[in-house]
């Protein structure tokens, strides 16, 4: 006779597994997202999200600002972590910059119109 409570089976293990596989299947975590947002008029804002931990966002921001001749800031978001925010449409510039500096093209996702 077996009491269900004494089973070694962990009811949460299954869900954890399935979640793990799901994370593998539809993972969005590894991508670097470059997005654009419209501001008033023809002004825009570019955000860079999902930067790998090994890169220093602060230094990268400094390099971006110097390279693209724009202002920008580092935003701390609860969900997304550190997000680099630049003035103007810098999407293609960012992606080329990152690719030139050794980030794989496949990991970069450029969003927007």
């Amino acid at each position: 006779m077996s009491v269900q409570n004494l089973n070694t089976f962990d009811p949460f293990a299954d869900e954890g597994e399935s979640l793990g596989t799901n994370a593998d299947v539809g993972s969005q975590a590894n991508y670097i997202h470059i997005r654009i947002q419209q501001r008033n008029g023809r002004k825009t804002l570019t955000t860079l999200q999902g930067l790998p931990k090994e890169y220093d966002a602060k230094k990268l921001l400094k390099a971006f600002k110097k390279e693209f001749a724009c202002n920008g800031t580092l935003v701390e978001d609860e969900e997304m972590g550190q997000v680099i925010q630049l003035q103007g449409d810098q999407r293609t510039k960012i992606s080329t910059f990152l690719i030139e500096n050794g980030i794989e093209r496949a990991t970069i996702k450029v969003h927007g119109f």
Partner: peptide, 10 residues
């Protein structure tokens, strides 16, 4: 899944 991602303050 469709994720809107970070939305900056505009």
């Amino acid at each position: 899944a469709i994720k809107s991602g970070f939305q900056a303050q505009v």
